[in-house]
């Protein structure tokens, strides 16, 4: 039988289970369930589990696994079998998703805080006001955290706002709200980046001393709302 997933090595210390290569809430929830199952069935040498849109990756130390577990076919085969077991054990997800927390994020759009809004408006032939309205009209799901500490990948944006990444990364300030493809996201720290930056939030997404130091978790729901320059300044810590 053809399995509806693929498992492949990510080097010699990690392995990925790919559920179908789609931005899809069901697949993302399935990936989360597999992560939970793996945490409950942790093995010696397990180092990290990373959930992305529709994939789960396990990082492990092969020497520890080999010392503590019987792996006649090698450590990779041992971990692969465990992932297959996780896929089966987590079963079929049906019914509506338990909805995560709704987090509202203020954004100052355009101008200095959103340097790419003007250009996006020109290329898309949509007024800036309409872009802001469209960007704020959707309750997004946090599909994954990656790229930078606490960077949430939110989906999906209105098709009219889908925008290509820049060909070269440029400096982006912490709080920058950007669009890339059908995703939108927020830069938690200053970093070079290729997303089209349409605004900036004064909310801190990364606090080194907090535990967890990041603001979002996969499954959270996020909605943006526009604020003025003055409000932005007054909300800046």
């Amino acid at each position: 039988m053809d399995k509806p997933f693929a498992i492949f090595p990510l080097g010699d210390c990690a392995i990925t289970l790919d559920l179908g290569h789609l931005i899809d809430e069901q697949l993302n929830r399935k990936a989360l369930c597999i992560q939970e199952w793996l945490k409950a069935h942790a093995f010696p040498g397990l180092q990290d589990i990373i959930v992305a849109y529709s994939s789960v990756s396990i990082f492990y130390d092969p020497e520890i696994v080999r010392r503590q577990r019987d792996c006649p076919g090698g450590v990779y085969d041992y971990v692969k079998a465990l992932l297959e077991e996780a896929w089966i054990a987590t079963g079929v997800l049906d019914g509506p998703a338990a909805s995560g927390a709704l987090i509202r994020i203020p954004v100052c759009y355009g101008g200095r805080e959103g340097p790419d809004l003007e250009e996006l408006s020109r290329v898309k032939n949509i007024t800036k006001e309409d872009i802001i309205q469209l960007h704020c009209s959707i309750i997004y799901r946090v599909y994954m955290i990656g790229f930078l500490p606490g960077f949430p990948y939110l989906g999906k944006v209105d098709v009219r706002l889908e925008a290509e990444r820049k060909s070269r990364p440029v400096p982006v300030r912490a709080g920058g709200v950007g669009i890339a493809g059908n995703q939108t996201g927020i830069y938690p720290v200053n970093s070079p980046g290729g997303w089209q930056i349409i605004g900036r939030t004064p909310i801190k997404l990364f606090e080194r001393a907090a535990l967890p130091p990041i603001r979002f978790a996969i499954g959270d729901r996020v909605q943006f709302y526009p604020i003025s320059q003055e409000e932005f300044r007054s909300l800046c810590p």
């Binding site: 990690a14 990373i50 990756s57 990948y153």
Partner: peptide, 10 residues
């Protein structure tokens, strides 16, 4: 490609 995990040496 959709974003997914990468590792040291990818």
């Amino acid at each position: 490609l959709l974003s997914s995990a990468v590792s040291f040496g990818t």
